[in-house]
């Protein structure tokens, strides 16, 4: 190995070491231990083949609920969430009065700690003094006392709201991409007499294909990680109505100390991540150039 080769190796070393320690070895451990009965702090492991997987998919009602919820949230997040962010980006791209204020405001819920956000929402939706019920009391129903997070009929909706409508990151990414489109494209379209609406639909959107694919991947995979906003509000309740896979994994690992089973859920999560990315890439023909 020559001198340059030595330096290249040295420069790569710390990152690769960190990667091995915190990503590679843990991923291997998750998949490996999912085939074992492994619980408690004794650390004793018994090989049980696919028993954990069979139990997970055939007789575990909490898992079914958690998987279903996670899938619904992935679907909502990659459609409604991305759409809200994109519509706002299209509006802000006109750079009308106050557009930067709107952009900055919309980023605030995205940059403060999710733990703070969870506690904020818990109070915002409090039935007696929360701002939501207080506003509804002024504009209509004086007797409203809906307990948003803990009522059977509203819990799922309320938890969903805490991330679905906060698409600040999507707006920033899409907006940046729109602004990099050459001015001449818009001018040509305007000369042809196209309306703003038509320009948005037929000219801008198709040019945003790659960034939208990135956004859908980010939005969908964020739902495979979502933890704090549920953990700090409903904790997955009422019953398992708002349980998702990360929270179920957390409970199985840290409250039940059933590590083998928790890591089976972890393996499912990792596989879902791979499938999501493959699907989105195919759907958007991501990375292929426009011709």
């Amino acid at each position: 190995m020559n001198r340059k080769g030595f330096w290249i190796a040295l420069f790569l070393m710390p990152t690769i070491l960190i990667f091995l320690l915190i990503y590679a070895v843990p991923v291997f451990t998750v998949v490996f231990t999912s085939f074992f009965d492994y619980r408690g702090f004794s650390g004793r492991m018994t090989f049980i083949g696919l028993i954990n997987y069979i139990q997970l998919f055939t007789s575990d009602s909490s898992f079914k609920k958690a998987l279903g919820n996670t899938l619904i949230w992935i679907l909502l997040q990659s459609t409604v969430h991305v759409a809200i962010g994109t519509i706002l980006a299209l509006i802000l791209a006109k750079k009308r009065f106050g557009w930067k204020f709107v952009r900055t405001s919309y980023m605030i819920p995205n940059i403060i700690s999710a733990s703070a956000l969870g506690v904020i929402f818990l109070n915002v939706f409090n039935p007696t003094y929360g701002i939501v019920n207080s506003i509804i009391k002024i504009f209509g129903n004086k007797n409203i006392n809906t307990n948003w997070f803990f009522d059977y009929n509203t819990a799922f909706f309320t938890v969903t709201i805490t991330w679905l409508i906060y698409a600040g990151l999507i707006t920033i990414l899409v907006l940046a991409e729109i602004m990099s489109i050459p001015e001449s494209v818009f001018e040509a379209a305007k000369i042809d007499g196209a309306s703003d609406f038509k320009i948005n639909i037929y000219i801008i959107l198709p040019m945003l294909r790659n960034i939208l694919a990135t956004c859908v991947i980010l939005a969908a995979t964020s739902m495979l990680k979502e933890f704090e906003l549920i953990f700090l509000t409903t904790k997955g309740g009422p019953a398992d109505l708002t349980l998702n896979l990360p929270l179920y994994l957390y409970k199985t690992a840290l409250i039940e100390n059933n590590f083998g089973y928790a890591n089976t859920i972890g393996t499912v999560l990792i596989i879902m991540g791979v499938i999501t990315i493959a699907l989105v890439t195919k759907l958007f023909k991501f990375g292929e150039s426009d011709v």
Partner: peptide, 28 residues
């Protein structure tokens, strides 16, 4: 067991709103 306490608190709303009978709650 710690996980029964967690089950208790996530299932209280069901009990409170009559979506679950005391018997079902006990079974859970």
């Amino acid at each position: 067991y710690p996980n029964t306490l967690d089950t208790l608190s996530t299932n209280y709303p069901a009990l409170a709103l009559n979506k679950m009978t005391p018997q079902e709650f006990a079974k859970k």
